[in-house]
Design a protein around this nucleic acid. Sequence first.
DNA 1: GATGAATGAGACTTCATTCAT
DNA 2: TATGAATGAAGTCTCATTCAT
Lengths: 202, 202, 202, 202
Amino acid sequence: MAPRPDVSTERRAQIIEAALTCFTRKGYVNTTMDDIVAESGLSKGAIYWYFKSKDDLFEAAANSVLERVAEKSLTAIQACETSTERLRVGAQSMVEVCREIEGYFGLVIEFWTQNERGEKAISFWAEMIAQYRRGIKAIFDMGVRTGEFKPVDTDALAWMIMAAYDGLAAYHMMMPDIDVDKTSEGFIEALLKGLEADGEPE
Amino acid sequence: MAPRPDVSTERRAQIIEAALTCFTRKGYVNTTMDDIVAESGLSKGAIYWYFKSKDDLFEAAANSVLERVAEKSLTAIQACETSTERLRVGAQSMVEVCREIEGYFGLVIEFWTQNERGEKAISFWAEMIAQYRRGIKAIFDMGVRTGEFKPVDTDALAWMIMAAYDGLAAYHMMMPDIDVDKTSEGFIEALLKGLEADGEPE
Amino acid sequence: MAPRPDVSTERRAQIIEAALTCFTRKGYVNTTMDDIVAESGLSKGAIYWYFKSKDDLFEAAANSVLERVAEKSLTAIQACETSTERLRVGAQSMVEVCREIEGYFGLVIEFWTQNERGEKAISFWAEMIAQYRRGIKAIFDMGVRTGEFKPVDTDALAWMIMAAYDGLAAYHMMMPDIDVDKTSEGFIEALLKGLEADGEPE
Amino acid sequence: MAPRPDVSTERRAQIIEAALTCFTRKGYVNTTMDDIVAESGLSKGAIYWYFKSKDDLFEAAANSVLERVAEKSLTAIQACETSTERLRVGAQSMVEVCREIEGYFGLVIEFWTQNERGEKAISFWAEMIAQYRRGIKAIFDMGVRTGEFKPVDTDALAWMIMAAYDGLAAYHMMMPDIDVDKTSEGFIEALLKGLEADGEPE
DNA sequence: GATGAATGAGACTTCATTCAT
DNA sequence: TATGAATGAAGTCTCATTCAT
């Protein structure tokens, strides 16, 4: 008698998928467990069999998104030669993230605003940001070291680039008409060349 | 019998003040009307006398914040001579906003994620962003027109600067240790000078 | 304009009354808040307005019963002359308690068995027993002091008398056919005269 | 292929053992089938293979306790000569029961309070009491018949003695500090000699 | 204008029981 | 026999909103 195949992995994935659909559609608080039950096609009990609470399910769902996102963009960057190229490709990859994460961004912020400065959520999220930021900073540091870039404040730049693309993601979520590709490109080019005219301003 | 003096204006302000305190402390959904009742020192009935629902009260509270913020930063900019200066002062003013708005940023995003793509909230918020963006874009446009700046994509830059500072505000909220002044300054200077080294990179 | 009359006292009484009816009918755990809502004629919210949880309501209800009971029996005893009389009257009053408390006895025990040795319930209940026991012991002590009773172990007797009547209450609850009056009387008389025959047993 | 050895008897015992541990620890209602699963080391399915419901399992568990208890104390009594001795030994054996049954007493009462005057439980329990009571009454009857005891109301006494020791068991459960041996002894001696002083009180 | 007791729909979660394997 | 994933009814409690006073 063959043992039953282990369905727990796919069940978890199935539930997370449903949860993500609901969460991004209505936000964390406005999503009810019944919504997720309906979306998943499973029963209430099944969901509580795999996740011990709504919070727990959210955390798993959020993690799953972040993992998907982080993996993709970091690999793209490492295939480039020059720092300039890396910056451009990194920006491009972040633009794609903007599109993919759709409602996720607001979701995480919403979750974060819960729980009177919820320690749990913050560490998880801060960790994610830190990891990403290291990647960005490395690009600038390398560019400065090779002489490709001017000796800029790479810490500050890494923060602001991260912030700019997170902000762009938020805007895109609110105003889908923004041409994120063109916006990102114009920004990166200006940043590369500098704003100040070379010649003598009158 | 003399008519009672009209207290409605100060009552509204009093309620909005209390609501803001609660909302920024616990988020929109986790704030109960009882919280606001306790914070305001008024009665449940009084609050429903002035605001017809929790949503209504939130909208009023959010508007009140945004008005306060917008006014302050736009005046600072208009006192500058050169576009470079304007950019620096504008950045500085946005940094101050980062500090002041504290929890407001997350609050608005949280509100926006409610209501299955809540039409109501989005228009209010988009309007606010648009207004602000026009101010930023004007700085770049003027700089380009006067030859002070290179002929950059001012649309893209305005979006990204806005996004960057909104993102910075969010980060600052999560990670209060970030030195927002230094970060902003490093970013603006790099943007002005450009990243690419002038000489010939090897 | 006259202020609304304060109905909180009678509301609480009304709710406690309904709760007691339900609790004694079905036990603590098997009574749902909806049962109490139906029995009280009020709404769910009203009950939670006055009592913050089911536990809280139970405690209030149990206290209310015990107060009623304790008061009645202690006054009866103090009207007697001799210790013998006091013992008889005390026994009689405890028999009446058996009848009145009906389901309450099992109720308290049930409540006590909850909560993995629930500290909260035990102190409340132990206090009640202690108070009662002091009254019983005082009867014996006085009887011994005046020479009316033999020099018996009054501590032991007080415990066992208490226990016997609590046990009787439990039996009566389960088997309403027991003639509690006759049973109590036979017991007390035997206790007064002693079991052992005076003459010489063969 | 040899038939598998019959494990059903030991499995049932194993499950009853685990159930008893859980029931006495947390009471009937607060014990979940999962608790019993964990305690027994078996699976949910196995338990439902041997017992068709939680109720069913409880009944079996309760019966198992009562059988154990009844057997032990009845044999001790029958080894005595005089009725006085039997009463003392019987009391002693009931004291031991107090210690052993620990949480069982509350357990049965709790179970009884379920089910809107649950017919099922009551008959099982009443039967147990009746059996026990017959044993006690026989002691008194014999004492009266032989002239060892005065002609007391043996029915009443049997009830009250039972009740007293059940009550004592309950007290001991709540207040483990009670010296049950001393308490029981003091009570029995007083009952044997009688309370009323023989001579003329001074 | 102002109060706060009252309402009741609806949220999250538990758990006895079943059944395909 | 035995397993444990799955079910779903039912329970406790919350909270935006109303309305008699």
